[in-house]
Design a protein around this nucleic acid. Sequence first.
DNA 1: CACATTTATGTAATTTAATTACATATATTG
DNA 2: CAATATATGTAATTAAATTACATAAATGTG
Lengths: 284, 284
Amino acid sequence: MNVLEQIQLNLNKLSRSERKVADAILASPKSAIHSSIATLAKLADVSEPTVNRFCRRMDTKGFPDFKLHLAQSLANGTPYVNRHVEESDSVEDYTNKIYEATLASLDRSRQMVDTATINRAVDILTQSKQISFFGHGASAVVAQDALNKFFRFNVPVQSFQDDLMQRMSCINSSDGDVVILISHTGRTKSLVELAMIAKENDATVIGITATDSPLANECNLVISTEIPEDTDLYMPMASRIGQLVIIDVLATGFTLRRGSKFRDNLQKVKQGIKESRFNKLLNK
Amino acid sequence: MNVLEQIQLNLNKLSRSERKVADAILASPKSAIHSSIATLAKLADVSEPTVNRFCRRMDTKGFPDFKLHLAQSLANGTPYVNRHVEESDSVEDYTNKIYEATLASLDRSRQMVDTATINRAVDILTQSKQISFFGHGASAVVAQDALNKFFRFNVPVQSFQDDLMQRMSCINSSDGDVVILISHTGRTKSLVELAMIAKENDATVIGITATDSPLANECNLVISTEIPEDTDLYMPMASRIGQLVIIDVLATGFTLRRGSKFRDNLQKVKQGIKESRFNKLLNK
DNA sequence: CACATTTATGTAATTTAATTACATATATTG
DNA sequence: CAATATATGTAATTAAATTACATAAATGTG
C-alpha cells in the first residue's frame, strides 16, 4: 500500500489538525513533495510539529522520508503489472504483457531469493565430485542450460533427459556427488523418486523448486522458486526464467569461489569454439 | 528522461569527483535516496558541495530535489543497472547484480522488440507445414524450449541438436516449411550453412539473431535480439533470456491466431501429463 | 456532573541538513 | 611558460526538521 492510498484510507481516523494536513496534501500532492514543512504547515493552518507527527503516523521516519514515499506514490505505482493476455489483444498488447509478466516475475524472484541458501549451494557445488542436473518438460530445458554452463568449468557434470538414464545416474551416485533437481511445482513424481534414490546413495540433493512440496521434502537443500504466477492458456510459464537466472547465479558463485584456475579454463573454452564462428570484421 | 538514465548516459562527461558521486549513487540508488548529503559525500569520498554540484548538473535544484527525482526514477520501472561482478563480491552482491543485469537486458529487449516483425513471424508460423528450431550452445537450449512449447500445439515441430540431423532436416525441407535459427551473434558458421540449405530447398528461414550478421543476411525474416551486453567471465549471457521470451511471444501469438481448436489441444496435453505429478492436496 | 487521566496541539529551543562563500588546486589554452 | 578557466574542498551561514515542554482539549471513571 502506498502513502497516497494510506492517507485516503485513514482520513476518518485522523485528528482535527492532522486531517487538515491530509487535506492540504491531497489537494496538491505534487506541490507538497517540493514544499518545506513550514510552507505546508502554513498552508494547512497547523504547526510544523503537527505535520511531522502526521508523517510519523503514516509510518515514515519524518517529513523528508514522507515526501520521498509520496513522490514514489505519484510516480505510477508498481513498475510492472502482470496482466492477462486476452483473445482480442493486438501483437503490441500481448507482446508487452508477456514481457511485463516476465519482468514482474523476475523482480519478485530477485526480492525473494535467499542468498544464504545460494551460498550454501555454491559451497556444496564447489566441493562436489560430480554434478548432475535433471528436470522434466520446461525444467529439462533449464537442466540443459545448466549443463551448458557448468560444462565450461571442466568439472564432472552431466545431464540426461532420458528417464532411465536419470535413474541410473542417481543409483550410481555416492558421497560427494551432487544432484540438482529442477521442478516448478515440486510435484513431478519421477523427480521425487530421483531425489530418494540419490539420497539413498549418499549424494547431496539440491532442489530448485517450490518449498513445502514433495520434492522439497526429499532434498538436503532447497532453492525456492515459489513465485505465485497466473498461468493460463496464453500466458507462458515465466518461472522457468527465474530458474535460469538461479543457474546463472550458481555458476557465477562457482566461478568466484573456484578462483583463477577456472577462469583460465573458461577462457580456453571460449577460445576453442572461436573457429566455429565467423570473424566479426572479416566475414561480414 | 529520468534522473537515473541521465546519470548513466553522462558518466563519461563527468569530472573525477562527480563521477565518484555517480558511481556511489548507481551502486545503491535505493539507499542514496534515504541518505543525507553528508553520508553520501563520505561514501563517495568527496565533499558535500561536490554532491550538491552534481545534483545541479543533473538539472535539479539541489540535493533534496535530486533525491525526489531519483525516487521517482526508481518507482518508474527502469530501476535496473547493469554492473559488473567483481571478484570481491559477496553472494548478495553478485546475486543482485546478475538479477539486475538480466532485468535490464530484458527491459531493453521489451523496448526494442519490433512487433511488426513478430506479427509477420506469427503469420508464417501459423501457415507452416512444419516448424524446425535449431541453435547451438546456449541457443540450443532456447531451441529445445521452443520445441517444448510448440509441441503442445500438436503441429509438426522438430528440433535436433545433432549437427547432421540439423543438416538433413534442412535438406529435406520444402516450400511451406519454416526453419527458425537461433543465435546470439549470428556468426556461428554451421547455422549460416543451415540457413542456406533450407532456403535452397524453398523453406522460409526466420532468424532470432543479431541484425546485420552473416546469419541475418541469409534469413527471410529476422527477429532482432541485438541488445548490447557486457559479457565477461563472471556475467552470464543475459540475452538468451530475451530469446526465450521471444519464443513465448511467438507461441502466444500462434495460439491466439490459431484459435479455439488449439486451445483445446493445449488443455488436452495439460490434462494428459497430470498423472505424472503428485496431487496438490492429497500427496503432501 | 466533576475530576483525573490521556491525547492533541502549538511555541520555542535545539539539532541536523543543505547551501553558499571563498581559497586553493588542477586542467586547459594561447 | 603564463594566464585563464574549471574543479574541489573547508569553513561559515542559512534553512529545514526535530525535540522539549507547556497548555488545551478530549476521554474515561466514579
